[in-house]
Design a binder for these strands. Structure first.
Lengths: 156, 156
DNA sequence: GCGATTTACTTCGAGACTCGAAGCAAGGAC
DNA sequence: GTCCTTGCTTCGAGTCTCGAAGTAAATCGC
């Protein structure tokens, strides 16, 4: 009865995430990051406009106080800076520093290398990507870690 | 450059896990569980022989002190009990109580319902299951949350 | 048998994460 | 200008996680 595909998929997906987290923890320590701060750093794509605290909190499924804490960690380590948004002076945007960009690249590289998905054939990976993309699209648009390639996003 | 399938897959998979966690948190509170304790409860399949603390810790990617803490939580809530393993009196096996079985069922049901994967067509789900199973198989056998259907496991 | 080592687990203390409540400053309605 | 809302921060409490140290049982070497 444990063999229904949905259960297998949910468990496998979760297991793969945990395994990946477990494998990268050591490398993250060298970068003075934890899983939480590394995830926050990952969520700031230098190719996109700098996200506000609120946007970032939504991306990370966490609340404002928690994000303040995480960003403080990154600021202390010199990986990001806070800027006041000129269009709304209540809002602070989080900007990667030069070193932050480098460290973020390293986090991504290590994570992709260590992921069990790294062992997939390109063809298998493409099928997987297509399915997962569809699944995410169906859940309704998220505050975008992944900015919708053909997208209608009006980021300014 | 963000479009390579591996990155998309790793991010999507992680995102889906987080989204699922976020969605079930409220329901778990009613069961007096957190994500960590719910995960521990999930990892104890009543159809398999009761796992030792060590086996359970391996399944959850956590260490011994942490597992002690989690099992204590579950014991306090009446969902599991510790038994001394007759074959090795150093070892304690974790056994679901009657209520523990019921609560575990509920955790699984809620999680599967709330998972973004729940929206997949059966055919899509099967393809996904096949791929993920292959990915996990390639990473080497884990201490088994998922006991290898055709398996050669000698559980005694 | 008996001591030394290893293994399974627990306790303890510290650090990291997360949240709700409360507070502050800026924007918007009127 | 006043009231309300929004974005963020600070604070305090609770949860999670780990390493270090300790206990008990098993195993090894003899």
């Amino acid at each position: 009865m444990t063999d229904q595909p949905l259960e297998l998929v949910v468990r496998a997906s979760h297991e793969i995430s945990l395994l990946t987290s477990d494998r990268i923890t050591e490398a993250l320590e060298e970068l003075r990051l934890t899983l939480a701060t590394a995830h926050a750093l990952w969520a700031i794509d230098p190719a996109e406009p700098a996200p506000s605290m609120k946007v970032l909190a939504d991306r990370l499924f966490c609340n404002a106080p928690n994000l303040s804490f995480l960003v403080n960690q990154l600021v202390e380590r010199g990986y990001v800076a806070r800027d006041v948004d000129a269009n709304d002076r209540r809002s602070r945007v989080v900007v990667l520093t030069e070193e932050g960009r480098r460290v973020r690249e390293r986090v991504m590289r290590v994570t992709l290398e260590q992921s069990p998905f790294a062992g997939c054939e390109p063809e298998e990976l493409s099928r997987l990507a297509a399915i997962l993309q569809r699944v995410l699209d169906r859940t309704g648009p998220r505050p975008s870690t992944r900015p919708a390639r053909g997208g209608s996003e009006r980021t300014g």
